[in-house]
Amino acid sequence: MKIGKKRMKKVILILTFFLLACFTLLAVDPVLPLEILEKQQEIKNFKVDVELVISTHAGQDSEFFFTYYYEEPDKIYLETDDFVLLPKEALKTMQPSFFQADKYSFNYLGKKEGLDILELIPLDKGEKYRLYLAIDSGNSIIRSGELFFQMANYREEFNAIIYFADIDGYALPVYIEGELAVPTKFAIGGEIKEYREGSFHLKLKDYAINIEFPEKIKKSLSSN
């Protein structure tokens, strides 16, 4: 009888250790799919045709059609027959360096519909955005993202949903839609005095990655 009790205690002790070990193993951080983000940095340059529609209220949309040229590290040029007016911050989000892993702290939020959800918080406290990415780790591709951002002199936070596609092995945005505050009154010097809340849709197509740009474009590329 005494032997039986001792054995029972041993079994319970072993079971307890086993369970603890299991929980400890489960609690280990998963491997973050950062290599997918890092892969974006292999893009030396690209060009893409962009169609941007900004709606401030029903019946009046502002449409912009342009070709976006990017060259590392931060050179951009917008080619258009008309004109394009964009916030400089918005242009940065289209650059591969936007995903540079050393700019962020990461939170792994688990799996959703088979995709790894990753929260990216900029290390630079001056940046007024946070980004959530849905990553298909199996196929090494970003499927979508949700960007929460604040605009200068505007309290409310807006969000934009970004859809990515596999283009030559890189995850590049092909459609973005979201809300924003459209400036309706400027003061001299660019200070925004009045906003109107609106929405935007951005279509990106015909990517050409790591190509030789014409001389004219090379000359026009300037640091952002």
């Binding site: 258009t80 004109f83 394009v84």
Partner: peptide
Amino acid sequence: PTPFIARILGDMFTLSGSILN
């Protein structure tokens, strides 16, 4: 007049192309 307007808009915005038409 595009460079004039671009200058007035300041550092927050980038104005590409030409507003002249």
